[in-house]
């Protein structure tokens, strides 16, 4: 079948989609957007979290056909959605790097979409609110402490989507990223 949807603000079309394919598979394997991750493919880990018409969902649990005509935002579209030019990071993306919230990084795209959604709803969440909002996203590396730091840092820097220039140094130059939110 053919599936049409808007992905990260652009109309996209996928052909020859088998009816059993998930939105996650179409994004990753047919539309060249592998940022959404395939850690469990059973809706338990949140690593494939995308926004579907504005609502965070596990893309692995959405049949490709259900996305027909709808609006999808993936991790690849977070900066664009925040109105930033190519190559810039959104506040929450920047904060994840600065706070040390990224280790292996496989959970990161889903956590970013979930955190972005939280900060859009609540620009100054409490720790308990952050934990609740991110409780559907498993991370195996960090123990979540640095992820909490990152969300606090993003909130302190102006939260959901505001353009942020902080820490945009050449990485090879070694930014001193001690994040004391």
């Amino acid at each position: 079948m053919r599936v049409n949807m808007t992905v990260n603000g652009r109309p996209r079309r996928a052909d020859d989609v088998w009816e059993g394919e998930s939105l996650l598979y179409v994004l990753r394997e047919r539309l060249g957007l592998p940022g959404s991750k395939n850690a469990c493919e059973q809706g338990e880990c949140g690593s494939c979290t995308v926004r579907l018409d504005g609502v965070p969902v596990c893309a692995c649990l959405v049949a490709a056909g259900q996305a027909e005509g709808r609006d999808v935002v993936t991790v690849e579209g977070l900066a664009t959605r925040a109105g930033l030019p190519d190559g810039k990071l959104s506040a929450v993306q920047r904060a994840f790097v600065d706070a040390g919230a990224v280790q292996c990084g496989f959970c990161t795209p889903g956590l970013l979409v979930a955190a972005d959604d939280l900060l859009a709803r609540d620009p100054d969440p409490s720790d308990a609110d952050i934990r609740e909002a991110l409780s559907g996203n498993l991370c195996r590396c960090t123990g979540y402490e640095k992820i909490l730091d990152a969300v606090r840092l993003a909130a302190a820097r102006g939260g959901g989507g505001a353009a942020d220039e902080a820490g945009a140094e050449d990485e090879a130059g070694g930014t001193d990223g001690r994040a004391e939110a």
């Binding site: 690849e76 600065d98 990224v102």
Partner: peptide
């Protein structure tokens, strides 16, 4: 506490995992 050289790629979704 320098930052990860792969950090930016990992938050933009561009970092190429084996899968």
């Amino acid at each position: 506490s320098t930052l990860r050289p792969d950090g930016t790629l990992k938050v933009t979704g561009e970092f190429a995992y084996a899968s």
